[in-house]
Design a protein around this nucleic acid. Structure first.
Length: 195
DNA sequence: CTCGGGATGCGT
DNA sequence: CGCATCCCGAGG
């Protein structure tokens, strides 16, 4: 049993302030078409990276051979490799010229996914996403985001993961998670898991 | 906890 | 060019 395609998120969805787009991405469906199949995961954890002033955002180096997609139009992918082992999928937000993006950190496996996806590198591996997707338009196959009309019951914010170097930006509550998901990359503190 | 892994941006 | 650094993951 295979789900049919649903509406792909339009450009206008991404062309908004990053702190609005990020929570709205929770509950949306990341769809990777490969070999005639649709590998699908429900987005459950994201982080916002906003502008050249944000010391955790790669845009702090300006527009470079790596970071150029963040400076382009919204609704495109920015993908990079870190630690030589893990690819990171980011979703470009804000109007062209405003460098910002949302890192997709975890998805819930829905279809055709055969390994853990509770981390940004693991989900890229499971969906066969690498730097060749950097600059890809997310309104077009083989990588899109669909709206299936579902919404998380509870969204919780926390500081972003592994940005201890980012000074004053370290504490900003720019990580957004579906508090009821069992597929997060880092577990929520107990006080958020109850209820 | 350690540590591999490879690209990247920057100082030279 | 060298090299410190990095939005991680696997393994112990």
């Amino acid at each position: 049993m295979t789900a049919s395609p649903r509406p792909v998120l339009p450009r206008a969805f991404y062309d908004r302030p990053t702190l609005e787009v990020a929570p709205d991405l929770l509950g949306k469906y990341l769809v990777r078409e490969l070999n005639g199949h649709r590998r699908i995961g429900r987005i459950v954890e994201v982080e916002a990276y906003i502008g050249a002033e944000d010391l955790a955002c790669h845009a702090r180096f300006g527009k470079t051979a790596r970071t150029w997609p963040m400076f382009g139009p919204p609704g495109h992918a920015y993908v990079y490799l870190i630690y030589g082992t893990a690819h990171m999928l980011n979703i470009v937000t804000e109007p062209e010229g405003c460098p910002a993006a949302v890192l997709v950190r975890a998805i819930e496996p829905i279809e055709q996914i055969d390994r853990p996806v509770n981390g940004p590198g693991k989900l890229c591996a499971a969906l066969a996403i690498d730097r060749r997707f950097s600059g890809h338009d997310l309104l077009l196959p083989p990588l899109t985001i669909e709206d299936w009309g579902d919404h998380p019951r509870r969204i919780v914010t926390t500081p972003r993961i592994n940005i201890d170097y980012a000074g004053p930006w370290r504490e900003k509550p720019w990580r957004f998670v579906d508090a009821d998901s069992h597929f997060l990359s880092v577990r929520l503190p107990r006080r958020y898991r109850e209820r």
